[in-house]
Design a protein around this nucleic acid. Structure first.
Lengths: 370, 370
DNA sequence: CTCCTGGATGGAAGCGCTTACAAACGCACG
DNA sequence: CGTGCGTTTGTAAGCGCTTCCATCCAGGAG
């Protein structure tokens, strides 16, 4: 219980050594690899450390071993479950590997290079996640200086890449809508080459092409709520002029009634889909009876909504974990490897026309046994 | 464009100095305070640094100045918008202050002290946020070694505390339910003294007491989905035996019909409320007609749900920012200050019986025209 | 033309830790 | 009771950077 007396002589390895009556080398060993120190000595050291409330200075260690034992993560400046999961997966894995994680949120405008230097200087490797800035160039530069991985974002040569499978899931999803009788299917989202949403768009196109159909509409919207609302407005407006609706001339008699000449909308993510559904519903339309809408990400809301939102679930946390492990490997000297893709699974709920119990039930009352 | 030739002679301040034909002191000044270096020299230094892709070693700087310029955050091992917002607020503020943030997720069980030491060693201050572990003791210990703040969690002496106002909001919320004609109001959540939910419970009690009412029921549930589901089951079960329902004997004729002798449930957070509503609805009951339910946090889902969930919004991001600023101040030498509370605002939606447009209207089927 | 002053630079001493390398020790063996 | 080996410990040399202090230099004042 003896207090330190003075106020701030922050305890260093020297004070601990002195207090325990050993050399600093011994203290260092006791903390680094206890087995290298005789039991009695070790106990004395720990006791001294405890009394002094000694906290090893990570900086000094990092300097000595030329390794910070920390990983950097760069995420978009966004709050949301998607990023949270990614981050949690990463952190948990990193921490299991004994690595700290330093977080940097990418500010869109303020491209302060000092900030990235600051991050780089304190980590052994960095992970760029999900459209953190539109900065392939930054990623490339960073990758020249530190092991780098890119998660759920565009690829950059020389950088390890991880992402959830998008294209074939999008195809499956779209095909599912076809089974529901949809024929005039639109897509919502920017089809940027290489982005996740871009890949989803490809899959959507694949399915359509395979069915001999053409895209019924395309709304280039940012994957955010406001953009979704705008799309909904457009739809509503177009539907107004379009007297189609009441008279109806559906390609298939059992599909949705249709809105603005469309009977389904594949949205780039849940946020978009949710916003669109909300606006349409507020206008008195019904999803999926009037229009089928699907999302992507399986956010909490997708699950609680009624009708439930049909969407695609990706093990985002796993992506984060993979990234952390890869980074550790790279730091350990391993070379860059091929991009890794993890699977995604369709989550069928009611917004596509399925029945509440998740059965791929149909407007066409065929056997759901398959 | 000249390549480095060799592969890994990581550039240090020495190589930059040599390359630029100056001393390391000058390079250091150029990076630290450019105004201390003659323009010509400065340019030469930066040019050399650029060519060499020099990244200052944060560890060395930290060692020299005895300050890491980094803040630690400890969060529960949870993904969710609440924590994300907290974190974003914190990070943005920290980064504006030129501080990095290192993230540590508190693992419930694995109380590995090495992990906390590791964190402590690399930051100048740490923020414990929202029930990160049930570890007041850990917080206290940390606070003896580093400036510490506690955000949205129990108070610890000697630690700066920030939280959103809970008690009076809970009282206002409960009073609002009384206005809707509710009289048999229950509470869902652990009323731990000092926790956020505990404070909400107090506010609820305050309102009841002021109205001369007594708590109608209390469900001690963890603030998670599963616990909410369980509460709902209990409700359903009790309601079954309770033949009350059909015959009905509401205290007020215009309140909800009631479920299991209750006509309203104030839940500790949205997650709980959402789960309860979902289960009840699945069982054919109606919220708010049969039972009024409210949440706390104003999650995205609360907004998209229909009926919308009446809840309480807190500027969580602001809390994070406040914490970061306080930490910076404490590191700068300022003393611990009184706990700071920020306001919360009631968000009235339909689950309490209000009309869709937010009017404090009543359940009776009045014109939806409004 | 000399002296002084302030600005620009370099020299060098740490910051707290790790880690060869060497010294010291204990002890089993012959 | 030496000898030799393995174990435990200490000595000291950095790791890359900041910063105090001294030095140097260009001008302006005298």
């Amino acid at each position: 219980m003896m207090l330190n007396g003075d106020s701030l002589p922050v305890p260093t390895i020297y004070q601990v050594a002195e207090h325990a009556g050993v050399s600093i080398a011994t203290v260092s060993r006791a903390f680094g690899d206890p087995s290298k120190v005789a039991p009695r000595t070790r106990d004395a050291v720990f006791e001294a450390a405890r009394e002094l409330r000694y906290v090893p200075a990570a900086a000094a260690r990092a300097l000595a071993v030329r390794r910070s034992k920390a990983l950097g993560v760069v995420l978009p400046h966004i709050a949301g479950p998607y990023y949270a999961e990614l981050l949690v997966g990463f952190e948990v894995a990193a921490s299991e590997l004994g690595l700290s994680v330093v977080l940097a949120l990418a500010r869109p405008q303020e491209q302060r290079p000092a900030a990235v230097l600051d991050l780089l200087g304190r980590v052994d490797g960095v992970a760029f996640m999900a459209r953190s800035g539109a900065d392939d160039e930054v990623v490339r530069q960073v990758s020249e200086v530190r092991p780098t991985v890119s998660v759920a974002r565009g690829r950059v040569t020389g950088v390890d890449a991880f992402y959830a499978e998008n294209r074939s899931s999008a195809r499956r999803l779209t095909e599912h809508l076809l089974e529901h009788g949809c024929r005039r299917i639109g897509f919502v989202g920017h089809p940027e080459e290489g982005s996740d949403i871009g890949r989803r768009h490809r899959g959507y196109l694949d399915a359509l092409a395979a069915a001999g159909l053409t895209p019924a509409a395309h709304f280039a919207a940012d994957p955010v709520e406001d953009a979704g609302l705008e799309v909904a407005e457009q739809l509503l407006e177009a539907d107004q002029s379009d007297s189609d609706r009441a008279s109806g001339s559906p390609a298939s008699s059992d599909g949705p009634r249709g809105v603005a000449g469309l009977d389904a909308l594949v949205c780039g993510n849940d946020e978009l889909a949710l916003a669109i559904i909300a606006r349409l519903t507020a206008a008195g339309l019904d999803v999926p009876a009037d229009l089928v809408v699907t999302g992507w990400d399986d956010t909490v809301t997708a699950r609680y909504l009624s009708p439930g939102l049909t969407t695609v679930r990706q093990e985002v946390g796993e992506l984060g974990a993979l990234a952390a492990h890869r980074l550790a490997a790279r730091i350990g000297g391993e070379p860059v490897q091929e991009p890794v893709t993890i699977g995604s699974t369709l989550v069928l709920r009611e917004s596509c026309g399925c029945l509440p119990d998740g059965v791929s039930g149909t407007p066409p009352p065929t056997a759901p046994a398959a």
